[in-house]
Amino acid sequence: MSEIPLIQVRGLHKSFGKLEVLRGVSFEVKRGEVMAIIGPSGSGKSTLLRCLNFLEEYQAGEVLFDNTLVGYRDSAAGRRKLDSERNIRRIRARLGMVFQSFNLFPHKTVLENVIEGPVVVKGQPRAEAEAEARTLIARVGLTDKLDTYPSKLSGGQQQRAAIARALAMQPAAMLFDEPTSSLDPELVGEVLEVMQSLAADGMTMVVVTHEMGFARRVADRVMMMDEGEIVELTPPEQIFTKPESPRTAEFLRRVLH
């Protein structure tokens, strides 16, 4: 069983109206693997990530999470139908997501943000959820901010709280969409550190990022995307030293100045 990759994507196509954003994307993410996704703006990185937990519907191809088709099921007539909300939610609950703009719940404190998922979605008793939340919040270094509202936190603190909120669901994998892109440069490090320690603990992670240093140090493989396609998917040593594709070389030259 454990050889079956946790996430399998095959021939994924996604359009917004006439605009084709993903044009046949296929890859796999093994358990415990960290995959970084890089590529120019508008290449479809966020859209790809959002298809993995079905925040976006896709038109063709398949996304399998833990060997289960995400978002759809086959109807009796052999045609694909939208899956039940219950099944979609069950998969989302097992995939943590961290956003570029944090998206903490502003009307809830850090502690309330972190227990929200376990209490509301899993029905965990509040006291138990709080105990676990405190451990997670300590792990991201925010113990002194338990009862603080997000608007009183720095960007780095907000993002660490958002990571704790996602972890509270005990996800099988974590999806990060440019988690440090809206942070002041001096706050990037504290968030990357938390992510690195997660990776070290064996968390399966898919990370869209512009932090090439992080991708190089932490990722097992790096995916280069351009215009809705995978240009290259190789270990970091290779992509950063001798990229196969001229498009990758050109992109890296630009971001690494």
Binding site: N53, L55, E85, R89, R90, R92, A93, R94, L95, G96, M97, F99, S101, F102, N103, L104, F105, E116, G117, V120, V121, A162, R165, A166, M169
Partner: peptide, 18 residues
Amino acid sequence: IDRGQSDAAKSLGMGYGQ
């Protein structure tokens, strides 16, 4: 309300009503 709020809620596994 920013779309990110419902994205965050959905990504935790919440339903529309929740």
